[in-house]
């Protein structure tokens, strides 16, 4: 069944809620210390207003992530789990998977790797 979604676009991040109530943040571009500030504000606004119980971060449009991107995700994970919600990551690049594993963050929530055809080459 096709889900009806309203996608709200905020530049590097868009937000959609499916009929099943799952909130999906689609992130785009580079996640570094410079760019995460703006993304964090948008995400925190939605999480505070709606407190969705099931949240997916789709990183398939992300071309670069370093420890600032990891910090963005860990900060949101703390917030979501704080009100009893659950987070999962999809579309994770090989590079970012290495960082998630190194930090142990891959044991905190489900993490799904990016499929070959969706991989972004930079």
């Amino acid at each position: 069944m096709e889900e009806k979604e309203t996608v709200l676009n905020y530049g590097r991040v868009s937000y959609a809620v499916g009929e099943d109530g799952e909130a999906r943040f689609l992130l785009n571009g580079e996640l570094d210390h410079h760019s995460v500030k703006e993304i964090r504000e948008v995400m925190d606004g939605k999480l505070t207003d709606y407190r969705p119980m099931s949240v997916t971060f789709d990183l398939s449009g992300v071309s670069f992530t370093d420890s600032a991107g990891l910090g963005l995700i860990l900060g949101r994970y703390t917030k979501i789990s704080g009100y009893g919600g659950a987070l999962r990551l999809v579309g994770v690049s090989e590079e970012f998977m290495k960082i998630l594993k190194l930090s142990g963050a891959d044991r905190l929530f489900p993490v799904e790797a990016r499929s070959e055809k969706r991989r972004i080459r930079v």
Partner: peptide, 11 residues
């Protein structure tokens, strides 16, 4: 703030 993972040097 909990926004930095402290992973810079480890990475």
């Amino acid at each position: 703030s909990g926004e930095r993972g402290g992973m810079g040097f480890a990475i």
